[in-house]
Amino acid sequence: MLERLKAFFRNPSGYHTPLPDADAAHAMGALLVRAAKADHAYVFEEIAAIDKVLAKRHGLNPVKAAKMRAECEVLEKAIPARGDIAVILEKAISTEEKEAVLLALWEIVYADGYKHEIEDGLMHRVEEIFGVTVERARELQEQVEG
């Protein structure tokens, strides 16, 4: 009985978000989630920032943006930690989109008010995979910082 009670509180409705198709939009969302979780703290400010980015980029209302984020969380969890989501996007999106993704990632990294070394490392790895020069990457970061 105790096990059933624990199971209920872990997932009271029994509902499981299905794994979404690994399209570019969901891969980008999964990368946002991974950036938010990079410092091992996934806080409300980061979640709200992800919802805001998804809503703006995909023309979604707040409820649909939150649903998409939930799908992206499932996708992010399904891709092994050593699997690089940025590699999926690198071939799927244009240079302009890569820069837009980097801007969104910096927004998420700064959403909690702290910048951690591990987040900085993730960002530089993504910039490298995307083929963005160090100078251009710094310009994008400064856009968000300022």
Score class of each variant (00 low, 15 high):
L60G: 00
A65V: 11
H58R: 05
R57C: 01
K64A: 09
E96N: 05
N61C: 10
G83F: 15
P62R: 12
M68Y: 06
P80F: 13
M68S: 02
G59M: 08
L103R: 14
P62N: 10
E97T: 06
A66Q: 11
A66S: 10
L60A: 02
A65T: 11
W106R: 07
L75N: 03
A65D: 06
V87F: 07
K77M: 06
R57D: 14
L103Q: 05
E96G: 02
I108W: 05
H58D: 02
E107H: 06
R69I: 03
L102I: 15
I108Q: 01
K67Y: 13
E73N: 01
E71P: 00
C72Y: 06
V101G: 01
I93Q: 01
M68V: 04
E97S: 06
L89C: 00
A86M: 06
L105N: 01
I88V: 09
A86P: 04
L103C: 03
A78E: 15
H58W: 09
K64T: 05
A81P: 02
V87D: 04
A78I: 07
V101F: 12
E99V: 13
G59I: 06
W106K: 06
A78T: 13
L60K: 03
V101Y: 10
K64M: 12
E90H: 13
D84W: 12
C72R: 01
A48N: 08
K67T: 09
A49M: 15
K98T: 04
A70P: 01
I85S: 02
I85Q: 03
A65W: 13
A86K: 08
L89D: 00
E96V: 13
A70Q: 11
A100W: 11
K77G: 02
A55S: 14
K52T: 14
R57H: 10
G83L: 10
H58Y: 15
I88R: 12
V63K: 15
G83V: 11
V53A: 08
L103Y: 12
L54F: 08
A49H: 08
E107D: 09
I50V: 10
A48C: 08
R69H: 07
A92F: 06
P80M: 07
N61G: 15
A78V: 07
L60T: 04
A81Q: 07
A104Q: 07
L102G: 02
K64F: 14
A66H: 15
R82G: 06
E76C: 11
A104M: 03
A55E: 10
I79L: 11
